[in-house]
Simulated scan of single mutants.
Amino acid sequence: MPVIVLEASDFISPLFLVRTLEVLSSCSTFSLVASLEPSELNNNTAHSQHFHRFWFFCMFTWGLFFTLTLLIHILSVIQFHSLLPISWKNLTMTVAVLGAMMCLSASFVFPWFIVDHQKVSPRMVMAAVAACFTFVAYSSESYILRIQTHEQRGYMGSMPGLLKILQLWGGCQMIPLAVEMTCGQPRQPFWQLWVSCASYSVCIFMSLVTLVVILGDFAGRCPLPFDKFLAGSSMIGVMLYMVATVISFTKVMQLKYNSHSYGLVIIEAVLVSITLLVYTVDLAFSIKLLCDRSHT
């Protein structure tokens, strides 16, 4: 089978150029951060315990989306994606939107927890700028894909699909925070910790299952009607995140303002509230869809 490549005009298309920028900026970002000397990084005693966990989170984010984008870029150039047993339009939209949100988080975490603000070196500034360029590149691809027709952008480009991506993003933010809460707050009540972690884990698992079903076009093969499955998972997510929200705000009220974990607990409370709002809106969309189908 001969290899088919893009036409010459496609190599200067906005989508091709923005994916090239994503590959270059993400590669530059994690390369610059990996090359930083230990003396350039945050050695503040109050933040040193956060360093390794959040450094791993940032490096994993940039490395993961660099790899995914490079594979998508190569497959798009050689036009090999039509042979893959996946929904290509949903995959590209998911990687673009999730990449934008995850890179936004990494762009915030890197200067806040990793950079030593008393010793800012040129490489640290370049890494922070490259991280921002990575976020802008993924946001640009998301916009380009979003303005396409409904048939071209797929389910993940619709409002319910974008809400599914935001749910997965919210769950991914909870992972490093939950680890930090576990290691950084030994006095935290045992039941609060495990109830929160169980809620996040169940919601992340449901989001991944939903994503696999959509990307693999398995909706027609599910034993349960897919729209009812989506409504049920959204309802479970709302209930679990309601519990997690109550726990997170309880921890905020229990902590002292000058505690070194106060900022992290505030961030957790804000992210949990945002994710709860996303699940609530998604549940409303799912109920509306079920009601519309019942009347037809």
Rank of each mutant, 00 (worst) to 15 (best):
W112P: 05
Y143L: 12
W62M: 06
M102K: 05
A131W: 03
L70W: 07
T61G: 04
A106Q: 06
W88T: 05
Q79E: 04
C103W: 05
Y143V: 13
A106W: 05
L91V: 08
V115F: 06
H81R: 08
A127P: 04
T134Q: 07
V136M: 14
M124N: 04
S142L: 03
V115K: 03
A96W: 00
P111Y: 00
S142W: 07
T94S: 14
F65L: 03
L84E: 02
M101G: 05
V120Q: 11
C58E: 06
L83H: 00
Q118L: 12
Q118D: 13
A106P: 07
V95S: 08
L70T: 10
R146C: 15
L84K: 02
I86A: 00
W88K: 04
C103H: 13
L104A: 09
H73L: 12
F57T: 14
A100Y: 04
T67D: 05
F80W: 11
I114Q: 06
M59T: 12
A96Q: 04
F66R: 02
S76R: 06
C58P: 00
I74P: 05
S82H: 05
Q118K: 10
I72Y: 03
D116G: 01
G63L: 09
T94I: 08
Q148R: 12
H81F: 08
V109T: 12
C103L: 12
L91E: 00
S140G: 11
S139P: 01
A131C: 07
R53Q: 15
L70H: 03
Y138T: 02
E151K: 13
W62N: 04
I86N: 01
A130I: 01
S121F: 14
K89A: 02
T67H: 03
L84C: 02
E151M: 10
W88P: 02
F135P: 06
I144L: 14
S82T: 00
F57Q: 13
W112T: 15
P85Y: 00
H117L: 13
V77F: 03
L91F: 07
L145H: 07
L64Q: 07
N90W: 01
F80H: 01
V136Y: 13
L145E: 05
T94Q: 05
F133E: 09
I114T: 06
V136A: 14
F108E: 11
S105H: 07
H73I: 06
V109Q: 04
F113R: 13
T94A: 12
H150C: 11
F56N: 15
L145F: 10
M124R: 08
